[in-house]
C-alpha cells in the first residue's frame, strides 16, 4: 500500500504542476482582467453601465466621459450580467442600465457558455441566491482546480494557439469570400438548439426588477450585425426583447444599421474598432438624448 501511494503521489505531483501552470496562466488572462473593472470602479462616478457579451466589446470605454462604463465581456450571459449588476447597484448611484437584447441571448448556447466562475466574484455571498456549495465550487474549485475545469483548459489552449499563430496575417471580414457560409455557421451555433433558456430568462427578469426597485431605467440594445448573419438568422429569436418589453423597457434596435458596411465588422456578428466607435456615438445620441427629452 505504501509503495502504491508513493508512486501515485509522484504522479499526482506532476498533475499538480500542470494544474498550477494552467491556473497561473488563466488567472492572468481571464480572472484578473475580469474582476479588474470591479476593483477600478470603486470611487468612480458612474451614471450608466453597458452590459453585453462579446457584441459589446468593440464599444470599448468610448462613453466613459459621459459617465457610461462598458462592462461587457465575451460570452457573458444574463447570469453574469445579473451578478455584475448586483455589485454596481450596491456601490453606485446608477441612472440607467443598457442591457443587450440580442436574439441569441436566451439560447441554450449562451446558457452553457458563460463566465459564471468569474462573475461570481461580483457576488456578495451574504445576499446571493447561490447555495454555499455552489458558490464555493464556482469561486474556488473552478478557478484553482484547472484539471477539472474545462473552461480554464480552453482558455489556456486558445492562448497557446494565438501565441503560435501570432505571425499569421488574418484576413479582415471585408476580404473574406465565404461570408454567407460563415454567417450560416455562426447562426447555427447560436440557434441550432431550439430550447429557450428559462434560467437566463429568469435572470433577465430579476435584473429588470432589481433596477425598477432602485428607480434605475433599463434600455435594451440589439447590436449591429452583418448582412450575412442577418440573412441566415432570418426571424430566429429567443425573445429577450419580448421579456424586456413586457416590463416596459425601450428596445433600441441597431441590427440593420451597418448592413451594407462590411468594413465596420471584424467577423459575422462583431464590430471592429472603427465600427465600435461609430456605434458608441449612436448610443450616445440615442440614449442620452432620450434621457434628456424625458427629463
Amino acid at each position: 500500500m505504501k509503495k502504491y501511494f508513493q508512486k501515485l503521489s509522484s504522479f499526482l505531483l506532476g498533475v499538480m504542476a500542470i494544474n498550477i501552470l494552467v491556473t497561473f496562466v488563466v488567472d492572468g488572462l481571464y480572472y484578473e482582467p475580469y474582476t479588474k473593472m470591479m476593483r477600478e470602479s470603486k470611487g468612480q462616478d458612474i451614471k450608466g453601465i453597458i452590459m453585453a457579451d462579446s457584441h459589446g466589446l468593440p464599444l470599448k470605454q468610448n462613453l466613459s466621459d459621459k459617465g457610461i462604463v462598458n462592462i461587457s465581456w465575451g460570452s457573458d450571459s444574463y447570469e453574469d450580467m445579473n451578478n455584475k449588476l448586483q455589485f454596481y447597484l450596491k456601490h453606485h448611484d446608477l441612472d440607467y442600465v443598457i442591457i443587450s437584447a440580442d436574439n441569441h441571448l436566451l439560447s441554450n448556447y449562451r446558457e452553457n457558455l458563460n463566465n459564471v466562475e468569474a462573475s461570481i466574484n461580483y457576488v456578495d455571498p451574504e445576499f446571493s441566491d447561490y447555495s454555499l456549495t455552489g458558490y464555493l465550487y464556482l469561486k474556488y474549485i473552478k478557478r484553482y482546480c484547472s484539471v477539472i475545469s474545462p473552461k480554464n483548459r480552453d482558455i489556456f489552449l486558445a492562448r497557446l494557439k494565438s501565441f503560435l499563430k501570432k505571425n499569421l496575417v488574418r484576413k479582415s471580414w471585408e476580404e473574406k469570400e465565404d461570408k454567407i457560409a460563415r454567417g450560416e455557421k455562426r447562426v447555427r451555433l447560436h440557434f441550432d438548439n431550439l430550447r429557450k433558456s428559462e434560467v437566463l430568462s429568469q435572470d433577465l427578469s430579476d435584473m429588470i426588477e432589481m433596477c425598477e426597485a432602485k428607480g434605475v431605467k433599463v434600455f435594451g440594445i440589439k447590436y449591429p450585425l452583418t448582412s450575412a448573419y442577418l440573412r441566415a438568422m432570418n426571424s430566429s429569436n429567443f425573445g429577450s426583447d419580448s421579456v424586456m418589453k413586457a416590463y416596459g423597457c425601450r428596445i433600441l434596435d441597431f441590427q440593420k444599421i451597418f448592413m451594407e458596411r462590411n468594413d465596420l465588422f471584424s467577423d459575422e456578428d462583431h464590430l471592429n474598432l472603427e465600427g465600435g466607435k461609430l456605434f458608441a456615438n449612436m448610443i450616445e445620441n440615442d440614449v442620452l438624448n432620450f434621457r434628456a427629452s424625458k427629463e
Partner: peptide, 20 residues
C-alpha cells in the same frame, strides 16, 4: 515510463471532451 502516463493524462486533459 512516467512520460507515457503523463502523455495519456495530458491528452485526456487537453484533448478530452468534457461538455456536460
Amino acid at each position: 515510463r512516467y512520460g507515457v502516463y503523463y502523455g495519456v493524462f495530458m491528452l485526456i486533459y487537453f484533448a478530452g471532451n468534457f461538455s456536460d
